[in-house]
Amino acid sequence: MNCEPLKAQLVDYLSRQLTAAEHAALTAHLAGCAECREELQAMERVWHTLGQAPVPEPGPQARPAFYAMLATFKDELETTPDYSLQGLWLRLRAWSIPRPALRLAYSLCLLGVGVLGGYWLNSGSKTAAADQQQLAALAAQVGEMRQVMLLSLIDNPSATERLRAVGYTKELPDPNSKVVNALLSTLNHDDNVNVRLATLEALTPLAQADATVRLGLVHALAQQDSPLVQAALADAMVQLQERRSVPPLRRLLKQENLDNMVKSKIEQSIQTLSDGPPAAPATPQRHDQTQFSPQPARAALAV
């Protein structure tokens, strides 16, 4: 008979970990197998010897050593700063500060807050003014940058970029003579009709206040060959009530290849300019012109 699987159960037999059925089977086997009985006896001796071995007890110094270590850990835990609000508050509470000192500290704090507040209120207006100045300086800088960008973009080979550059003039608060010259030269020499139209559109509002621009527009009449720009210029002249544009307009009429539409448009413009607008009386118109009179004189000299 194969005893090996039963031998494996001997340990459990000794430690009483067998089930009732296993126990019965093993006892039955042991009754008939001398070899296994011998094995069990030997195992039993070892098992009991092991059981009789004295249980080692920890020495008396184990407990004090443990408490000492525990105390060290507790100290560490307490000294480790607790950065939570509650921990801070507890540590503040734990401080034993004499009452007068505490009151003194409070009053000093209040005084400090008052002084700081007063100082801040006083200096507030100054800083606001300084802020305004800074803002103005910044705005001026931005304007300058726009001008520089415009001047560099207006020579760009791409028509889109040139259109963009012309568009920038609308955002400039008061374009200087450099910008105006650049725009006028674009109006006269740009290859692209769209760019020229956009330039004219940008120049017209400037012409209201600047005589140089008016004069430039009058001179531009002779340079244009595109019917669209010619018509737009004629419109602008009417809008500006610029009488000086009548001779160049007449000269334009004499051109042979002039578009019929443009022709009638120019004739109409000359008519309007010579008669003055029907709604406005003649004298205020004169008055209107004299209002700008110092500027055209100067502008004419400059041109």
């Binding site: 031998k7 494996a8 340990v11 195992m43 070892v46 092991l50």
Partner: peptide
Amino acid sequence: VKAHRALQALR
């Protein structure tokens, strides 16, 4: 099984 073998070895 390990416990059993250990006890046998000890024996």
